[in-house]
Structures are given as structure tokens and as C-alpha cells.
Amino acid sequence: MRKYELALVLVANLGEEDKLSELGKIKEIIARFGGQITNVDDWGKRKLAYEIKKVQKYKEGFYYFIHFDAATSVPAELESRLRITERVLRYLVISLEDK
């Protein structure tokens, strides 16, 4: 098992229930493929560095950083599902070095 960090930005026009629902779905994907979440850091709503245009233009987003332990195949599976999720503006999965 390796240590990973998922940086995630959700669209800013979500209600509290929708935001928690999306976060729950992402946690479920990690768990389904054998990953174990160690920490979820909620940074809240923040201004984006640049405007992102999907269906509409977004200037803000909800930032999350999720730390998890998983097999090396899990990040690819996670990214393939995040890529098609409409409420996700940006994501990045990185491998953390073991200390």
C-alpha cells in the first residue's frame, strides 16, 4: 500500500447536502477499490486562481485534500471516475513519499 493525496475542487454552487454527497461518493470509490482514507482536510470555499469554464464560468470552488493508503492501481481508477463527474472542477492525485 502506498500513500496518496487527492486534491479536489468542487463547483461552488453546491448546497451543503450536495457537497457532502459528492464527497461521500468519492470516499466510496476509494474504499471500493481497497483504499483506506486517513485524513480529509476541508479548506472550504475559495477563489480560483483563474476562471474555469465548463457549462458556465466558475470563479470559486470548494477545496478538499484527501489522504489515503491504496494499491498502485487505485489512482488510475479514481481519476477515470473523477474525469466524468460534472461537479468536479479539478483534481490531482499525487503519491506521497514514505518517511
Rank of each mutant, 00 (worst) to 15 (best):
I52A: 01
K45C: 08
R46A: 05
K47Q: 14
Y50D: 06
K53Q: 11
K54M: 11
G34Q: 07
F62M: 10
Y58S: 09
F62K: 02
K53W: 08
F33Q: 08
Q56V: 15
D41Q: 13
I37W: 04
K54R: 14
K54F: 10
K45P: 06
Y50F: 14
K54P: 03
E51T: 12
F62L: 12
D42L: 03
T38K: 14
N39R: 15
G44T: 05
V40H: 06
K47L: 12
K57V: 10
V55P: 01
W43G: 00
N39V: 03
Y58D: 12
E60K: 15
K47V: 08
V40E: 12
Y50P: 07
G44I: 08
R46K: 15
F62N: 12
I37K: 09
Q36M: 07
K57F: 01
G35P: 11
E51A: 08
G61D: 03
V55Q: 13
I52G: 01
F33Y: 15
W43T: 00
R46C: 04
E60T: 08
Y58T: 02
G35Y: 09
V55M: 10
A49C: 04
A49K: 07
I37S: 08
T38D: 07
V40Y: 09
Y58N: 14
K47M: 08
I37H: 05
E51C: 03
V40K: 04
K59Q: 13
I37F: 03
F33C: 03
L48N: 11
G61S: 07
Q36V: 14
E51M: 10
I37C: 06
G44D: 04
K45M: 13
I37R: 05
